[in-house]
Simulated scan of single mutants.
Amino acid sequence: MGTIRVGTASWTDKTLLASGWYPAGADTPEKRLAHYAKNFPVVEVDATYYGPPSEQTTRLWAQRTPPGFTFNIKAFSLLTGHPTRVSALYKDLRPETTKKNVYPQDLPPKAYEQVWSRFLAALDPLAEAGKLGALLFQFPPWFGIRRSNRDFLLEVVDRCKPLRPVFEFRNASWFEGANRDETLDFLRAHELPYVAVDMPQGHKSSVPPVMAATADLAVVRFHGHSDKWTSKDIYEKFGYLYSRAELAEWAPKLRALADEAKNTHVLMNNCCADFAQRNAATLIDLLGDAAVPAPAG
């Protein structure tokens, strides 16, 4: 069996800070990250989706965590084709426009290339410290199965080398009928890690929980089952606390996935109050020896 690292998709969320999960003494960003790293071996940074990180910030993350700790980084929205706030772009690359949001095609080609290179370069301190796990490319609901999108996955791999991108789809067409095997076969043929999800079903963005390893790295993200999944309020959207019984059903599935992959990352993305942290701790307990412990500080 390969390794299983369990963590959450945030350590700085305002509702987490207000929940009491952090001890009173963890009253600075440095102390909170250190406390998180005492409890979990991996974290997913979602803030990088909304705005590219600076190299100074990633260097601090590397310095403030013990050896063996892993950061997964969510790709900046522009790089996955999502609408991106003009104000989130690097100042010297912002196009002259009255639009609040832009897409890749709204930038000159040279500016688009610069966004890619600067985003990836900012991750160098984590990579050099051996603490960079995967780059999460979560695609928008309109990114369906077609040749041009499969080609884009390969383009992302080439752009990110030697870093490791992983791919999460939000369009069910990738797994409808015969497309399921076609998708998994394509990913395996190119050794592209796939992100399995647990999420509400019955929505345009819903993808079934297909548990499969398509490379030596597998990733599973738990989004919860809120009945307000379409809400624009993220705390309504992700405000779901899994029961121990629900997670107990997942434990054998995760062990089976780890039998297929060398490394498996499991991230709780139900980030509302301390739901994700509580559920991650429960899942680690259920997995027992299969779960990698938090690194010694």
Rank of each mutant, 00 (worst) to 15 (best):
D233M: 04
F238C: 11
W142P: 00
K31M: 09
S243D: 03
D151E: 15
F40L: 13
A218S: 15
L126G: 10
T12C: 08
E30C: 07
D181I: 05
K262S: 14
H203A: 08
L163C: 04
K204T: 11
A37F: 08
N279Q: 06
A26E: 09
H225Y: 15
L78M: 13
L33V: 12
R32Y: 12
A196D: 01
P200K: 08
T183Y: 02
D259P: 00
F119W: 10
N263L: 08
N263V: 13
T12E: 10
L163M: 15
H35V: 06
D198G: 00
V166M: 11
F139K: 00
A122W: 00
P193H: 07
R159I: 08
V195R: 02
M268N: 08
L257G: 02
A218E: 05
V43W: 01
L257D: 03
A245S: 12
L60Q: 14
P41G: 09
G288V: 06
V220G: 02
V43R: 01
D27S: 14
T28W: 11
Y240W: 14
V102P: 06
M268L: 15
A62P: 11
A256D: 13
S10Q: 05
S173N: 05
P29A: 10
G297E: 14
D158C: 00
P200S: 07
N179M: 08
G224S: 05
E236W: 02
S54R: 13
S87H: 07
A111E: 12
A290C: 03
V156K: 05
P193N: 06
D92M: 10
E128A: 15
A127W: 05
